[in-house]
Amino acid sequence: MNSFIFNTTAQIVFRPGAAGDLGPLASGKVGGSVLLVTDPGLRKLALCDPALASLKSSGVTVTVFDEVEPDPSFATVMSAVELGRLSAITGVIGFGGGSSLDVAKLVALLCGSGEDIENAWGVGNAKGPRLPLVLVPTTAGTGSEVTPVSIVTIGGDEKRGVSSSILLPDIAVLDADLTLGLPPHITAATGIDAMVHAIEAFASKNANNNPLSKMLARSALQLLGANIERAVEVGRDRAARGAMLLGSMLAGQAFANSPVAAVHALAYPIGGRFHVPHGLSNALVLPHVLRFNASVAAATYASIAADAFPHLASVSDEEERCAAFIEHLADLSARLGLQRRLREVGIQQDDVASLARDAMKQARLLVNNPRDMTEMDALEIYRAAW
């Protein structure tokens, strides 16, 4: 068995209504003055209010930064850092989707250490220390509450990341009640995102791919595959929502240690340049990347096919089961009402060449892909997706 390292969030709280008890859960860790990082939509919906009230009743002074946008910019990160420094914060709470959680991670790092972010980009370069950090996801997709990665947008369209175990939070609070009001299209896109995390983690050729990540990826696919359609169709189903939130977290733990690959590498330019939500960007290229990989990874994909779609266990031939798995994933996106073609999200055929060039910049992800990918390969995949 290969040697490996497995890191994850120190404490995980999974309970409906837990966000309303954030004060008792987190105050001992974050100290007396915190910055709560969220987005304007959640603030307007008052989704943060029970958490804010709980923190204040526990004697915590809360400063709210609610300017996080989708695909957050580096400028947004630095605005939050400046507010945190002015407020002399002792801890950070991220409350929201993956964008808010990613911003919160970098705020905790930069306010806690003062290090130069230019030296932190990439894998294992952040030195820390960071401030105490608590993350509260409001979508079931990114798994950011258990991953050591923060992705932000640089210069308008380039995705850049910091990946370091320092960014893993002290506490993750999973409250399914926070996801009950998610619109169907967001539920669908974030759910597919979580499934991509599990699939890519399981198949990753990263040297740190390990039995724990594989086990977690399979468990995630079982939960996500069984509940995603119900969560989209009946959004107030707390059991389905909880299963999706747990599945997303398990997938996050898997890919945090066995990193994702070409699906994400090709999705990032779509999101960065055309502002397509990350989960949908993944869904648009997923079947096409898997078909490309199938020549070397058919047995791998076949081994997890029945986790997501149990009836595929009856398909005995590995190549046939792999092909069926890929087609079922494509059909699932369609059943969930997601766009299936790049042209449907405003991307022109003339854009695919530049997308392929940009995808090649994601070398930290492409090295994990089961099959080596060239720029020409990426171009053909984008063409197939168009």
Results as ranks from 00 to 15, higher is better:
S3F: 14
T8N: 15
A19C: 14
L25K: 07
A26R: 06
G32L: 12
V34A: 10
L42F: 04
K44W: 11
D49S: 13
L55Q: 01
T63W: 01
V64G: 03
V64Y: 01
F65Y: 14
T76E: 04
M78D: 10
S87L: 01
S87F: 01
G94H: 02
G98N: 04
G128Y: 06
L133M: 02
V149S: 11
V152K: 12
E158T: 13
P169Q: 09
P169N: 08
D170Q: 09
D175M: 03
T179F: 02
L180D: 03
G181Y: 02
P183D: 05
A188I: 09
A189R: 01
I192R: 00
I192S: 00
A194S: 13
V196H: 01
H197E: 08
N209R: 13
V234F: 08
A240I: 02
L246C: 12
L246Q: 09
A251H: 09
A251D: 07
Q253N: 11
F255A: 08
P259C: 11
P269E: 05
P269S: 03
F274H: 13
H278R: 08
G279N: 07
G279K: 05
G279M: 08
A283N: 12
V285P: 03
L286D: 11
P287V: 11
N293W: 10
N293D: 15
H311S: 14
E319N: 15
A334F: 05
R335D: 05
R340P: 01
I347P: 07
D351K: 14
L365K: 11
